[in-house]
Structure formats: structure tokens, C-alpha cells
């Protein structure tokens, strides 16, 4: 074995980390998220005897995946066009940026339906868990998660357009940033300050608080629903405005033609 060549090729990768903030973020980001998420789950389980925790966890996992898939349906579908060097074909056609985003929203729904069907069926077969026990309240819960996923997806896509393909890691990482503060597997009360305050301004935390309330009391806390709807309305508006502004900037800076290079 020639150690010089091993070292040379190791250096090739180290150079990447030296110049790339997104790659550097990867090194610290995932361990931090894992530590936060599973740390809070442990704290919750240690403090409480949680009745029916299988239903809590599996239900939460299925709903969280819906948010994640709706975000990925936008960001990863956009990246597919970048990877195949097809983006210019799209933007020299009469299709507008708004129509392009609308088509990504539709594809995110299709992907979500497919993956959710598989997850729901497997949860029923493997754990005898039927998410439809949540009843009609499932509709506003899912709708809010999808809209939050779309807002994250649109902002992520705008950032990849602006900063180029090396920021594509955001397509996988940004939604997971919200997982610890969404209180997916534990109540918001487990979170220490200021994370509990940040959670109050995260639509998904209200959805998961709502889910647990439906499971335990059979009633939906309407305050949480109102919070989730209002926050989502604000965030999706911000996402669309940000994307439009960013798209104009990208064209002004001549970056649209450089993405994927």
C-alpha cells in the first residue's frame, strides 16, 4: 500500500471541508440532532410512565414522515432536474417559476400518498397500529404537516438555487432540524428554555401535541389547531415571497445557468 497516495486522496476530501460550510455542517449537524432528539425522548420516558407508547411513537413516526416526504417531494424533485442538467430546458420553456413550484407540490403529494400507504400498512401489519383511529382529526393534522413541509421545501429549493449544488445537503437536513423542537416523540414540556419557546412558533409542535391529546383524551385542542394554521399561513407566505425574490436575484446574478456546474 502506498501511503502517499492514500494521504493525497484523503487531502482531496479535506480540501472540500475546508472550503464548504454545508459539508462542515454535516459533520456536526447530524450528531447534534441525534443527541437532542434521543436525549429528550430518554428524559420523557424516564420521567413518565407512558401508557400506549407504541401508539404514541408509531403514530408520531408516520405523521413526521409525512412532513419529511412533503418537503423532500419539492427539494429532491428539484435536485433531480439539477442532476440531469434539465433545469435550463424547463426555464427556457413557457413554464413560469410559479408553475414549476406548483408541479413540485403536486409530485410531493403523490410521493407522500405512496410512502404513507406503505408505512400505514406496515404499522398495521407489524404493530397492529391503525392510524385511522385518530378519526377525522387526522385531516387537519396531516394538512398542517404537509404545508409546513412545503414551506421548508420551497425555502430549501430557493437556497440551493442561490448557493448552488453544494448546498444540496439542505434537502435532507433542514426538515430534520425541526424534529427535536417539533416534540414529535415527547411533549413540548420536556424541552428546556428557550427550545420550548421556539417550539411554540413551530407548527408541527402543535400538530404533535394535538395528536397526543386526541390519543389520550379523544378531543382535539383547538388552540393548537389555530396556532398551527396561523403559523403555517405565515410561513408558507414567507416561503413563496422568499422564493420569488430569490429567483429574481438568481437571474440578476446569472446563477440560474451555473447551477449543476
Amino acid at each position: 500500500m502506498n501511503l502517499r497516495r492514500v494521504f493525497a486522496y484523503t487531502t482531496r476530501h479535506l480540501y472540500l471541508y475546508k472550503r464548504s460550510f454545508p459539508r462542515l455542517m454535516e459533520v456536526f449537524y447530524w450528531p447534534l440532532l441525534d443527541l437532542l432528539l434521543w436525549g429528550f425522548v430518554t428524559v420523557y420516558l424516564a420521567r413518565n410512565a407512558v401508557p400506549g407508547f407504541v401508539a404514541f411513537f408509531v403514530g408520531a413516526l408516520i405523521l413526521w414522515d409525512m412532513l419529511f416526504r412533503s418537503q423532500q417531494g419539492i427539494s429532491v424533485s428539484f435536485l433531480e432536474d439539477v442532476w440531469s442538467r434539465n433545469l435550463l430546458n424547463i426555464f427556457v420553456s413557457p413554464m413560469t417559476a410559479v408553475e414549476y413550484i406548483a408541479s413540485l407540490l403536486v409530485i410531493s403529494i403523490v410521493k407522500l400518498l405512496l410512502t404513507s400507504s406503505v408505512m400505514i400498512t406496515l404499522a398495521w401489519l407489524l404493530y397492529s397500529y391503525n392510524i385511522f383511529h385518530l378519526g377525522i382529526m387526522l385531516v387537519p393534522l396531516i394538512a398542517n404537516l404537509i404545508i409546513m413541509g412545503w414551506a421548508i421545501g420551497i425555502i430549501t429549493t430557493a437556497l440551493i438555487l442561490r448557493f448552488g449544488q453544494e448546498t444540496e445537503v439542505l434537502a435532507w437536513g433542514v426538515a430534520l432540524f425541526f424534529q427535536p423542537i417539533s416534540a414529535v416523540f415527547y411533549p413540548v414540556s420536556v424541552l428546556p428554555p428557550p427550545l420550548d419557546t421556539i417550539a411554540r412558533f413551530t407548527p408541527s409542535s402543535h400538530v404533535f401535541e394535538g395528536m397526543r391529546a386526541v390519543m389520550t383524551d379523544g378531543a382535539f385542542p383547538y388552540d393548537d389547531l389555530v396556532w398551527a394554521v396561523c403559523l403555517n399561513a405565515a410561513y408558507i407566505t414567507v416561503a413563496v415571497v422568499f422564493f420569488s425574490w430569490n429567483f429574481r436575484m438568481v437571474k440578476k446574478k446569472g446563477l440560474l445557468v451555473k447551477i449543476g456546474e
Binding site: 433531480e80 432536474d81 442532476w83 440531469s84 442538467r85 434539465n86 435550463l88 430546458n89 424547463i90 427556457v92 420553456s93 413557457p94 413554464m95
Partner: peptide, 29 residues
């Protein structure tokens, strides 16, 4: 843009789709 078009050796088309599928999509666009 509905009445003009563009090609370059530096662009491509979605790799997983067949030639026919790609052309159908752009015909619709």
C-alpha cells in the same frame, strides 16, 4: 418563449426517462 426554443451540448434531459417520455413532456410544456 412558447414560440422560441433552445439547445446546447451542455444541457441534457432527465436520465431515467426514455427519449419518448422526455419528448412527450416537452411537447406538453
Amino acid at each position: 418563449l412558447a414560440k422560441v426554443n433552445f439547445s446546447s451540448s451542455y444541457i441534457s434531459l432527465p436520465h431515467s426517462l426514455t427519449v419518448r417520455e422526455n419528448l412527450k413532456i416537452f411537447a406538453k410544456l
